[in-house]
Amino acid sequence: MLGASDLVVGRGGVALLEGLSLAVGTGDLLAVRGPNGAGKTTLLRTLAGLQPALSGSVDVAPDTLAYASHADGIKPSLTVRENLIFWADVFAAPDGIAPAVAAFDLEPLLERLAGRLSAGQKRRLGLARLMVTGRPLWLMDEPTVSLDSSAVAALAALLQAHLAGGGAAIIATHLDLGIEGQVLDVTPHRAQGRTAPRGFDEAFA
């Protein structure tokens, strides 16, 4: 579904991670681990095509992935239904919002303003938002931030359902979600400054 080989990612012209190779297929979960500031977010954004790789390439069809940063992109002044319908329309999802509402048990909350939801309910809405995009591959940056342990367990269960339904996910996280899957520890890939990034003149360094 998504593959990358010998990838170098960085920001501001400075390489952060290098020598990354990864492959994610249907039903796979890839957990990206590593200390803060190592470049997990940069890697995810590069995979999502939001920023260019410094070298190497990401091989992914453009309409397979949806990227969620750690903010959940929910408008508090819209109802749950309006939030979901918006994303379904933007992504021209063929099935509308019904499957996502059923999967995440949002039916009783549909007319509630998103700002009035509890943290766990918001997280469910945030995931449902990814589901209504109809994109099979989810890239999630620190989805467990500010969740308590029961919410994390719920998140893990939802993710497992997504994977079982033919989806895939790449997740940057500190926590072990308890789901079978690949783990990519970025620590050994941290750039040593050897790789000269594209367009960056060696004379600066």
Binding site: G193, F204, A205
Partner: peptide, 17 residues
């Protein structure tokens, strides 16, 4: 400005090392 830029790169490299 070139020198300033170079200093910034050196700083960044040192911070990572």
């Amino acid at each position: 400005l070139i020198r300033e830029r170079r200093l910034a790169v050196l700083d960044a490299q040192e911070a990572r090392a």
